[in-house]
């Protein structure tokens, strides 16, 4: 495993991350999704040692993330949602500052990315657009032979063209089977094409972590009339919503549901966004009932 979190907890005054577990193998992209405030950034802060966990174990490259932090960070590329680069430095000065800390910096590769992304290296960081700042972060993250890319909402606030560009770059990065990407976002459409695994977090709890194809192949959105609902079968419907005309919900196995309810219901293949909506709705019900 390139990344493994076991029973990791972190408690704040108004929010807690509760015993979360997740793992990512080499060569895959994991989409880490959840609504705003679900715990995505907190999880990334814990992995990156920006905050201290209260309980549990975090292993990166099979090593304890706190004891081997220098060795680990040398092999991690990171892209954050906000710019943390020094605004007064030019992109070139910023790159030179960062490269001095990595033992495996690849300057020709950086220059290639800078050219590909059209980065104006002589401009101060403060004069770069949000998209350019993100591309600069990405070029830096990709130029020191990182084996794990950690991206915290890299696409938030970017226009669709730049978002698409970023996703294409990630797809090409992952051609190297030695690399993995941990990608947090609340924009699920970013993950439709690129993610291999999906982990959903809500209210500080992992609600689901599985292969994306398995998720999209098995789950289904079911719609039918209310007279089909009984006390016994309500349990099988995830994020059940009732209205005057009937109900809609998510089911874990749409083939089984189709067999059981036949043509009395309509069952559709869900999108990631629908899965997130239904699952977090159930999560919200769980959270409020405790």
């Amino acid at each position: 495993m390139i990344l493994q979190l076991t029973n990791v907890s972190k408690h704040y005054k108004d929010f807690s991350l509760k015993k979360i577990n997740l793992s990512l193998e080499r060569g895959y992209i994991m989409g880490f999704i959840g609504p705003n405030g679900a715990g995505k950034s907190t999880t990334i802060k814990l992995i990156m040692n920006l905050a201290r966990k209260d309980e549990g174990e975090i292993k990166v490259f099979g090593l304890d993330h706190a004891k081997h932090s220098i060795e680990i960070r040398n092999k991690i590329g990171f892209v954050y949602d906000e710019n943390h680069y020094y605004e007064e430095l030019t992109a070139e000065e910023m790159k030179n500052f960062i490269r001095s800390f990595y033992s495996r910096w690849d300057e020709p590769l950086f220059q290639r990315y800078a050219k590909q992304f059209g980065l104006p290296l002589t401009k101060p960081v403060k004069q770069l657009s949000k998209g350019m700042k993100m591309k600069l972060q990405l070029a830096v993250a990709l130029s020191h032979q990182a084996e794990l890319l950690i991206m915290d909402e890299p696409t938030s606030g970017l226009d669709p063209i730049i978002r698409q560009e970023l996703l294409e770059i990630l797809l090409s990065v992952i051609q190297d089977e030695n690399k993995s990407v941990f990608f947090s976002t609340h924009i699920t459409s970013d993950l439709d094409k690129i993610a291999d695994y999906i982990t959903i977090i809500h209210n500080g709890q992992i609600l689901l972590s599985t292969a994306k194809d398995e998720l999209l192949d098995n789950y289904g959105v079911i719609k039918g009339s209310k007279d089909l609902l009984s006390f016994a079968n309500r349990e099988h419907f995830i994020g059940l919503r009732e209205n005057r005309y009937g109900f809609d919900a998510l089911v874990e196995n749409r083939r089984e549901a189709a067999k059981k309810y036949g043509d009395k219901v309509v069952i559709e293949k869900p999108t990631l966004e629908e899965i997130l909506l239904y699952i977090t709705r159930r999560g919200a019900v769980h959270a409020s009932s405790h």
């Binding site: 220098i70 960070r73 991690i76 943390h84 680069y85 020094y86 007064e88 800390f101 990595y102």
Partner: peptide, 18 residues
């Protein structure tokens, strides 16, 4: 002040620096 403004400590802590 500049480091506070851009939250550059997050950058420094994420780099391989003790």
């Amino acid at each position: 002040a500049q480091e506070d403004k851009t939250g550059s400590d997050r950058l420094l802590i994420s780099l391989p620096i003790r």
